[in-house]
């Protein structure tokens, strides 16, 4: 709601945050580097979180707890932002992240059926990972590939103009490419 309208402009003072006893140490160096890069710039929480997600594949809890005092943003605000945007993940995704675009163009071109097919063939719901942690399925808003709608991104590789029947193909291609890369 309104609190979420401008989630990236924290104006609160830095709160002293004693470390939780008995917690495994977060990879503090990396967090500190990210925090240092962004803390001076007001309104850069989202950028910092992007960098965390690029580093870890998601935003781990211990990194969020460590980041908060270092960039002067309360943990609660970090989670407001993390849960507001579909893009951010708070748990480890699968090895292959399938992002099905559900933006307007893709939606009109039938991305709903594509998402449903992925869900059926992978055996996990949208926003979840397969039990073997190999696949993570997510619907994302516009990925800027409206010209080839409906589009899907798997680990950075774009598949366009898909039909629901192509889903099995995409899965095979990803697995084949991965196997080939493993041999090299």
């Amino acid at each position: 709601m309104s609190t979420n309208d401008q989630p990236a402009a924290p104006a609160k003072p830095v709160l002293a945050q004693p470390a939780a006893p008995g917690k495994p140490a977060a990879p503090s160096d990396q967090t500190a580097i990210i925090a240092k890069r962004w803390r001076a710039k007001r309104g850069s929480l989202i950028m910092a979180l992007h960098e965390v997600q690029e580093t870890y594949g998601y935003v781990p809890r211990d990194v969020a707890l460590k980041l908060a005092p270092q960039i002067g943003v309360p943990v609660a605000r970090i989670y407001e932002v993390l849960t507001f945007y579909n893009y951010f993940k708070t748990s480890a995704p699968g090895k292959f992240v399938v992002s099905v675009c559900t933006g307007t163009a893709c939606h009109l071109k039938g991305s709903g059926d594509i998402l449903a097919n992925f869900s059926a063939q992978l055996g996990c719901k949208e926003g979840e990972s397969t039990t073997d942690k190999l696949w993570h399925l997510q619907g994302v808003r516009c990925i800027g590939c409206c010209g080839i709608a409906p589009a899907v991104i798997v680990n950075g590789k774009v598949f366009g103009k898909l039909k629901p029947a192509d889903v099995g193909d995409v899965i095979d291609k990803v697995l084949t490419a991965d196997a080939a890369a493993a041999k090299v």
């Binding site: 609160k12 709160l15 943990v75 609660a76 989670y79 849960t83």
Partner: peptide, 29 residues
């Protein structure tokens, strides 16, 4: 409650998580 907890009391226990129809009051995580 979120405004009281965050802005008035500076405690930051409560927050709005998710958005739209799924918006709910909860702690971070």
């Amino acid at each position: 409650c979120v405004q009281v907890c965050q802005d008035k009391q500076n405690v930051w226990a409560l927050s709005f998580l998710d958005r739209g129809i799924d918006t709910r009051i909860a702690t971070a995580g």
